[in-house]
Design a protein around this nucleic acid. Structure first.
Length: 848
RNA sequence: GCCCUCGUGGUGAAAUUGGUAGACACAAAGGACUUAAAAUCCUUGCCCUUUUGGGAGUGCCAGUUCGAGUCUGGCCGAGGGCACCA
């Protein structure tokens, strides 16, 4: 008997697929299309298990759709701009381009080892000129349309590295590389006007019916729509300041107004710039840092001004104006009215500065003397102590009625605010797409003219500089155009821009004149199924949705707006973590165990290893498993099978060597079964009963596959594959007609082929079938049976199972139960009050 | 603090959506084969009963229903997202 040699078989089919371009996709209007896309990888060096999981899930779907005769687009590319290349290049004295290209070639090979149904002719790489030059076109188009602008903004500035840091690069207020205290610095930056589309980005979420609710609600929170009104407060104490505008969602609490708070960056702060105390206060505020954490636990501090604000509903009432550290300049108007009784932040502030606390809302179960003490009351109820607002129900009528009054009296107006901020895309880095802008001698920005496009990133740049290396490339930075001197923009684009339209490029990877070809995207877009990690739930997906709107803005030819019709977010791959006695992390291959409980360092029985919780695989915790090694040991099909087993794809999965071995063994067992079946395809016997049983089982299995494929329950597919094996293995004890066996077996091979494609194709070939058959249809007539097992419940409790005829009616079944030996005993002599009958499934008899 | 998701054996999990709870697999224990081990195969898996059988049981407490893992309300616990957003 032959052992199944995965090494030979997998290589053989991968070569054939590559040579024949089996998975090449082409435009074909006569065929239904299916665009299956997985988030493309960053070429960091080697693929990791997360990639294996992501691409295996996509591959199963893709192959399934191919067998259902869809025209499938399943491409792959590289998100190849970004910081790691720059850092790695600095460490290894390599050019980022060389480093990146080397990684791509290694990883491409590794992906091929997995046997993915990728159309490699469509491969793209975002760091190539052929890609980013089109991105510059999009940038300039957006600039023309007014969707790109330049503005001063606060950033996290690392004074040692002289660079801007992303929020996640700031740890405890210090730069992650330099360790220097991060400063808040104002810098001119380019912005995409994503907030222009806030309303549309929010409402269209409701139409994305195949997106996980979790992702939709995360985006909803991020966009953060709130309904309220803007109010102008008259100001006294400075003749140049007549009024200050505030945004509020609770205008109905205006009678509880006890102070007005401003952001330290509010325009009015200019009147205080000579005040040493104010400068000290502002410094104190910036010390609390820009990180979210420091804000969350930070104490509320304020700076009292000589100004007073007047309550628009009662001009006799005047309250102090403060600068306060908890007011943000980039939300609303950078100014809030404080109502301590009904807002906890305002309450904290009021207690600290001894401000008035006036209760204006009472809960329904309290009387009009209800008083808030030191905890703000923010629930519903009724307005009190508020003159003409008294009696309004909170919140269902109080807010809208108050806004109406405010509008009537021309004190302000209704206003909807969004939390979503414009997208800052400038990065002070070398390895990214150059921003196609140049500045004249007065510093005014101009789009780079067409005949100077694309702006090509210079090569062989010295990276050992402070700040952005491009600033030092003088012959690139300084240009002359039509006799005028210009300086180039040296900032490059955030790499999220690169990934905001790559799915369009896959439709027309060779289009020279523009980023995409209209006919191609009309046919292929939107992506039918997008698959990737949940860590991109907000930014990448939101930016891509924005980009489609921005490209389509003022462009009639562009028909769709949502790039991803279906979205699936897969879970992470986890592994136990290990530490030695000193607390150093250990790799899984450095530890060993004899009993599965106590671990020690390999070959050193006395060096005890502490086993930590299973966590997402990461290099820093050393709990990674190298996919290439695993493929070498067990084969691609085994890895694919294991990575889909046990856990549903959207949940985290535990890597286990034992599970891996089990999957490997299962394929070996399938091969033995295959050999056995192959030996029997010429058997001539007739056995109707067995044949019916076989047909029924196979059709039920196909049915189960269809159901679970649709729902991404790939773990259940694997379970049902095991059941199929167990069934066939024992079924072969029967005598059976070889052709009927073969017919059904081919269906099983077809439905398992998306999961373990090398194995399936090899089996087909050994049976003389040269092309994988189309996905089998379920024969509903074959699932029906003459005999049904009815569950018999008595007074709601299961008492047994009884065999009966298909579609039997209730009365006949009751008769049968009454006459049954053991079940009849229970009923005998009792009165049947009522019975509930579920056809072909169950009967519940109520007796007394 | 706000929002979302999830609680089922020793473990990962099924349960076609209100109708046989624990499919399938991992681990464990016992057994068969073997001189032995590995591999393979079989059995077991809560409580009571020698067996036949009976009972409890899906985080906890109530409710709806002939019937609840599934629906409703409350509580407890875990994970994730956002977080001074006015």
């Amino acid at each position: 008997m032959n052992r199944y040699n995965f090494k030979v078989v997998e290589k053989k089919w991968q070569d054939i697929w590559e040579k024949n371009k089996t998975y090449k996709s082409s435009f074909n209007k006569n065929k239904k299309k299916f665009y299956c896309l997985e988030m493309f990888p960053y070429p960091s060096g080697k693929i990791h298990m997360g990639h294996v999981r992501n691409y295996t899930i996509g591959d199963v779907l893709s192959r399934h759709k191919i067998l259902q005769d869809y025209n499938v687009l399943h491409p792959m590319g590289w998100d190849s701009f970004g910081m790691p290349a720059e850092n790695a290049a600095r460490e290894n004295k390599l050019d980022p381009k060389v480093w990146t290209e080397k990684n791509i070639s290694v990883m491409k090979n590794q992906l091929k080892m997995l046997g993915l149904s990728i159309d490699w002719d469509r491969e793209i790489s975002t760091c190539s000129q052929e890609y980013y030059k089109h991105q510059q076109d999009f940038f300039l188009e957006m600039y023309e349309k007014g969707l790109v602008y330049r503005k001063e903004n606060y950033v996290n500035w690392d004074p040692v590295d002289e660079t801007v840091l992303a929020n996640e690069q700031v740890i405890d207020g210090k730069g992650w590389r330099s360790g220097a205290l991060v400063q808040r610095k104002k810098l001119n930056q380019w912005f995409f006007n994503i907030s222009k589309f806030s309303e549309d980005l929010l409402t269209e979420l409701d139409n994305l019916s195949s997106w996980p609710n979790k992702v939709k609600s995360m985006q909803k929170n991020w966009i953060g729509k709130s309904f309220g009104c803007e109010i102008d407060f008259k100001i006294e104490g400075n003749k140049d300041v007549k009024s200050i505008r505030c945004f509020t969602t609770r205008p109905d609490t205006l009678f509880g107004f006890s102070f007005l708070a401003l952001s330290v960056d509010h325009p009015i702060s200019k009147y205080f710039e000579d005040d040493d105390k104010f400068i000290a206060f502002k410094k104190e505020c910036s010390k609390t840092g820009t990180t979210e954490e420091s804000i969350a636990h930070g104490e509320k501090i304020g700076f009292k001004t000589n100004l007073t604000a007047i309550n628009p509903f009662d001009e006799r009432k005047k309250v102090p104006v403060f600068f306060a550290n908890f007011v943000l300049m980039d939300y609303g108007f950078g100014a809030v009215f404080g109502c301590p009784a009904h807002d906890q932040r305002d309450m904290d502030f009021a207690i600290k500065y001894n401000l008035k606390i006036k209760t204006v809302v009472k809960p329904n179960n309290e009387d009009k003397n209800f008083k808030v003490k030191d905890k703000a009351y923010t629930e519903g109820g009724e307005i009190i102590n508020s003159e003409f607002l008294d009696g309004f129900k909170v919140p269902e009528e109080s807010i809208i009625k108050t806004i109406n009054i405010i509008e009537e009296r021309k004190l302000g107006k209704k206003k909807i605010n969004f939390r979503l901020k414009d997208w800052g895309v400038s990065r002070q880095r070398y390895w990214g797409c150059p921003i196609p802008i140049m500045y004249d001698e007065t510093g005014k920005p101009h789009p780079v003219p067409k005949d100077l496009l694309p702006v090509i990133l210079p090569e062989n740049v010295n990276l050992e500089t402070k700040g952005n290396p491009l600033d030092y490339v003088k012959d690139w930075k300084m240009i002359e155009y039509k006799g005028e001197k210009y300086k180039r923009e040296t900032d490059t684009l955030d790499t999220f821009v690169d990934s905001s339209w790559y799915f369009l490029r896959f439709c027309s990877p060779n289009e020279k004149s523009y980023g995409y070809n209209q006919d191609d995207i009309d046919y292929w877009m939107p992506v039918d199924q997008y698959i990737g990690g949940v860590e991109h739930a907000i930014l990448h997906l939101l930016y891509s949705r924005f980009f489609m709107r921005a490209i389509g803005y003022k462009k009639d030819s562009f028909k769709f707006i949502e790039p991803f019709d279906g979205l699936f977010t897969q879970g992470m791959v986890c592994h136990e973590t290990y530490k030695d006695k000193k607390g150093n992390w250990l790799r899984p291959d450095e530890v060993d165990t004899k009993d599965g409980k106590n671990y020690f360092i390999k070959n050193k029985l006395n060096d005890i290893v502490r086993v930590g919780p299973s966590e997402s695989m990461s290099k820093s915790k050393k709990n990674t498993i190298d996919p290439e090694q695993i493929i070498q040991n067990y084969g691609a099909d085994s890895v694919r099978l294991f990575i889909l087993s046990d856990s549903p794809p959207e949940k985290d999965i535990q890597w286990s060597e034992q599970g891996m071995v089990a999957s490997y063994k299962f394929i070996q067992k399938l091969w033995l079964l295959h050999e056995e079946i192959k030996n029997r395809i010429n058997d001539k016997s007739n056995n109707t009963e067995a044949e019916n049983k076989l047909e029924r089982f196979i059709n039920e299995t196909i049915n189960k596959f269809d159901y679970n494929l649709e729902k991404f329950n790939y773990n259940v597919l694997i379970a049902s594959l095991h059941e199929t094996y167990n069934f066939l293995n024992s079924f072969l004890k029967n005598k059976i007609n070889g052709q009927i066996l073969l017919k059904n077996y081919l269906k099983i091979l077809t439905i398992l082929s998306p999961i373990i494609p090398h194995f399936a194709t090899e089996c087909f070939e050994s049976l003389g079938v040269d092309k994988t058959p189309n996905w089998p249809e379920v024969d509903k007539n074959r699932i029906k049976t003459d005999i049904v097992n009815y569950v018999v419940q008595i007074n709601g409790k299961k008492k047994g199972i009884i065999e009966s005829k298909h579609n039997i009616d209730e009365k006949d079944l009751l008769d049968q139960i009454t006459n049954d030996k053991s079940l009849g005993k229970i009923i005998k002599g009792k009165k049947i009050e009522k019975s509930f009958f579920v056809k072909n499934k169950l009967i519940n008899i109520l007796i007394k």
